[in-house]
Design a protein around this nucleic acid. Structure first.
Lengths: 160, 160
DNA sequence: CTTCATTTTGAATATTTATACATTTCTGGT
DNA sequence: ACCAGAAATGTATAAATATTCAAAATGAAG
């Protein structure tokens, strides 16, 4: 479970970064990165990540993540980016994480996280500029960060 | 050639309109509309139109036209929509068409049309708020309109 | 109207991608 | 620790899609 999330993030980034034109190609890339999986799993992951294949001048076809996929639609997506801008900082303590935000942002961001229902996070409590996240037993800080980036890609600027 | 353009427009609209989940399904729809073609041709058309297949809650997969496909990228796409807003009117006379635009828009729009190199249009001459289009022999007014919509989808609001 | 070159298309096929099914791996409760 | 149920994965295969190759259509030039 834990590994699945991480793998999907890696797949997503491979796609965002590279010019990949078939699942086989992507499969080799992932294996090079140390992930063990088969084409079947890859196909399922791509479905979950809403990856699409479109024609491309140079390669014939490339995999892309259409704008606004993963987040229903474009408007939702830009709202998400807006919210990500309100993110200031995250600190960990035991099985808890505390996110500090710009004033007023906390509950909106918490709602986004809640709706995504990430495996890593059991629950959230939000004030005005602070969110408390309760982490699932066994989840690492790095897992948490990956999970949050998966929900709000723009956070990568601040967390990656 | 003429028919090919028209067919591709019909395909594009079927995709924009409907929830189509396989080429076979789309093939039947096109045949119902009186187009004669095979899956092979359809596959090529979808490639040309930069249509993509992404996962969908209800249907498993649907065909979509990712935002900004057909036009290189999103920024280009919004510029295109902006320009389409400057379009006022089109009138035909013999093998010529005259587009009236808001002041200053004409040459930008003409450049977009020139770059698309539509079969239907031999050439354009633009002033400040007027574009003269020379139509290819045998091209109908309806062909022209379809062709322009194919270039600037947003024109459909004003021409469809 | 021919002829040649180019483009488009279909049929058959290769390639790619999705999924059914069986198996393994997790998770939670006792 | 053990078991039952759920989720994830691989294997094998079905289904879907892209491409090769040959034929037909179209266009340009004489």
């Amino acid at each position: 479970m834990k590994n699945r999330t991480k793998r999907q993030l890696a797949i997503k980034q491979a796609i965002l970064g590279g010019r990949i034109s078939s699942q086989d190609e992507l499969l080799h890339i992932m294996k090079d990165q140390g992930y063990e999986l088969t084409q079947a799993t890859l196909s399922r992951d791509l479905k979950i990540l809403k990856v699409a294949k479109v024609s491309d001048q140079a390669l014939g076809y490339v995999y892309v993540i259409p704008e606004g996929a993963n987040t229903e639609n474009q408007r939702e997506n830009s709202r998400m980016n807006f919210l990500a801008d309100g993110f200031r900082d995250i600190q960990f303590s035991g099985n808890m994480a505390v996110i500090k935000t710009m004033p007023g942002y906390a509950s909106s961001i918490a709602v986004v996280i809640d709706n995504a229902e990430p495996y890593e996070i059991i629950g959230t409590i939000a004030g005005d500029d602070t969110i408390l996240l309760i982490m699932r037993e066994g989840v690492t800080q790095s897992d948490m960060i990956n999970s949050l980036i998966l929900i709000m890609p723009k956070l990568e600027d601040k967390l990656g």
